[in-house]
Write a protein that binds this DNA or RNA. Structure first.
Lengths: 104, 104
DNA sequence: GCGTTGTTTCGATATTGTTGGAAATGTGAA
DNA sequence: TTCACATTTCCAACAATATCGAAACAACGC
């Protein structure tokens, strides 16, 4: 993962509505939810939600699947996992034992 | 961790300079670095760096320690750990086996 | 086809974040 | 005390992002 990818992913999550969308999809993994259901659950107007879902998809944090009239969104676990790895890369100069072991 | 705390932490990391600062401090954990060294390594003007370090500190991702004329910054592992936990909370409705086990 | 429903794009506005020079603050050394 | 150095605050210009109504687009049932 490159720095720019990480910034994109972090920026996608660094917004209240998008973070709520992502966490809702994580709770509903791996089935996912349709856009309409997400909007209903989080009380977001359709254009606003669409804007945010697009950002999450571009960041590689959710995937989309057309299902007839509906579009199903799913949390992309590989995306969040790559992000976490990037954040903790080379921790303590490669000697992770220097950090509290039970935390890592 | 509350939603607002998570948004603050994610926003702090969702910026190229701040992300670079944080990762530099992670690599140099647990010793940390002084502001001047960070600015030198990343080629950031002092006011800009100070602005970013403040954001990281407010987000609970770095700690500060006055050392004479210098101020030493350290990555706060507990902060990043809490953030990661928040992101993956209640994964798959509490049945994490539904996600790829090797990823989690 | 035609109306209905689900989703996205467009557009205009409001809000917030980033940047770095100049100046101020704080700390230690001479 | 005076100087030098490290860091922060202040400020103003600039850039990026959030919001949501109206309209457009897409897919299904009749």
């Amino acid at each position: 993962m490159k720095t720019n990818d990480a910034v994109t992913a972090l920026a996608a999550l660094a917004q209240e509505s998008r973070l709520a969308v992502f966490r809702l999809l994580v709770r509903n993994a791996p089935d996912g939810l349709t856009a309409g259901v997400i909007g209903e659950q989080l009380a977001l107007p359709a254009p606003t939600l669409s804007f945010h879902l697009k950002a999450l998809a571009l960041a590689g944090l959710v995937t989309t699947a057309q299902e007839g009239r509906y579009v199903r969104y799913r949390a992309e676990m590989a995306g969040i996992n790559a992000l976490i790895g990037f954040l903790t890369d080379d921790c303590c100069g490669g000697r992770p034992g220097l950090c509290s072991p039970k935390d890592w």
